[in-house]
Simulated scan of single mutants.
Amino acid sequence: MTLAISPQARDALENWLAAARALKGAADNTLTAYRADVLDFIAFMTLHHGGTEGLGPLSRLTVTDMRAWMAHLRGGGAGSRSMARKLSAVKSFYRWLAEREGYEPTAVLSTRTPKFQKKLPRPLSQDAARAMIDTVEIQNVKDWIGARDAAVITLLYGCGLRISEALGLRGRDLPLGDSLRIIGKGGKERIVPVLPVARAAVARYVAACPYPPEPDAPLFRGSRGGALSPRLIQKVTENARMQLGLPATATPHAMRHSFATHLLSAGGDLRTIQELLGHASLSTTQAYTAVDTLHLMKVYEAAHPKA
């Protein structure tokens, strides 16, 4: 479908993406998703209007056009969450384009976002999180690989790192101190405390690793010395959770959720947890409040003396 897009429309899209990168610090993964979503939108509108002339199809959008696009997405099997993400990208692009080309943006910007129920994080219990780390460490016959995998998972749970952030560490970050400087989504920087158990796990891995740490090389290496793939960590976690009888939601990202939820349960301040996680919005962190409330309600239901 993208072949129907005119060079002018492609140039507009690339200029918008460049602006999003430069002005908002959008991450590469975010920009890739934006490009795909907006390309599909432009292609649909181009074909919907029956031509490929310049930016013409985007200059005369109506509410009916937007409804046709939404119906097209729904007919293609897109869920409400996916549609909401696509619409958000399109609105951002069109708002930028309308300012530059003098288009009337009302039809696009007034399109309602499909309602969907946000999925709450699914944290592990403290015992399950510890068991996950212990089990991951014995998955591989090579001790250094087991130590590596345990160190990565310990950083996710002990420091609340995203898997991309843990695997983004370099040799220059050694030795780990009391805190770690992390560059997260959108280039946002934060400082996270490093627990002694996390420092010890990384130190064990470094001591056992056959590849000496180099300042500009990845800290966590694959079996052949290259950068460690996130998929390998996902796989070893999957194997461990199956051994432990944990649900499919026990993923590497669940370890990060567990970090936040357990801090909150212990009386951690929501604003502080937001900073530790690197969330841009407090509303994202507030999802953990709901998780903790569910836990408290379960305790209440189990312990309250009923009349």
Rank of each mutant, 00 (worst) to 15 (best):
Q243Y: 03
P121F: 09
Q8R: 13
W69T: 10
K306D: 00
A203R: 14
R199Q: 13
P215V: 08
L87I: 14
W69S: 08
V108K: 05
P175A: 01
K235H: 15
G226M: 07
D178Y: 04
L109S: 10
A131D: 14
L277K: 05
A303S: 15
V192R: 01
L270W: 10
R130Q: 13
H49G: 09
T2N: 11
Q234P: 05
V291D: 07
M242I: 14
D134W: 04
L120N: 02
M66W: 10
E238C: 01
L31V: 07
G51M: 01
F93A: 04
A240Q: 00
A4T: 13
K91P: 02
A260N: 08
L161V: 06
L180M: 06
S82F: 01
R35D: 02
D40M: 06
R256L: 08
R112F: 00
E214C: 08
R199W: 07
A250D: 07
A33P: 03
L156M: 13
T46V: 00
P7C: 04
P196M: 11
C209S: 15
R21K: 15
M45Q: 14
M45K: 03
R112C: 01
S164W: 02
A166D: 10
P210D: 03
D269M: 04
R231M: 01
G50W: 10
K24P: 02
Q126E: 15
V136L: 15
R199L: 08
D216S: 15
K91N: 02
Q286A: 07
E214T: 12
A128H: 13
Q126V: 15
G79S: 12
H304L: 00
L195H: 13
Y34H: 14
D65F: 03
V38F: 01
D292E: 15
F259Q: 05
E53V: 13
P210C: 04
G177C: 05
K115V: 12
D11Q: 15
G77Y: 06
Q126N: 10
A248W: 03
R224W: 11
A128F: 09
G158I: 11
A33R: 02
L120Q: 00
G79T: 13
E238W: 07
G77Q: 04
T285G: 01
R204G: 04
A227Y: 06
R231H: 11
H72C: 09
D11R: 14
W16T: 04
T251V: 06
L109N: 08
T237H: 00
N29G: 13
C209Y: 06
E137M: 11
H295L: 12
E99K: 15
R199I: 09
G102W: 08
E238I: 01
A302P: 01
A27T: 02
A200R: 14
T249W: 04
L161H: 11
P305E: 01
Q117G: 12
L246H: 10
P212S: 11
L61M: 14
C159G: 05
R122Q: 15
Y288N: 10
V202M: 04
K24G: 06
L244I: 02
A166S: 12
L219K: 10
P175D: 03
E275Y: 09
F116Q: 07
T62M: 03
T30K: 09
L246D: 08
L55K: 12
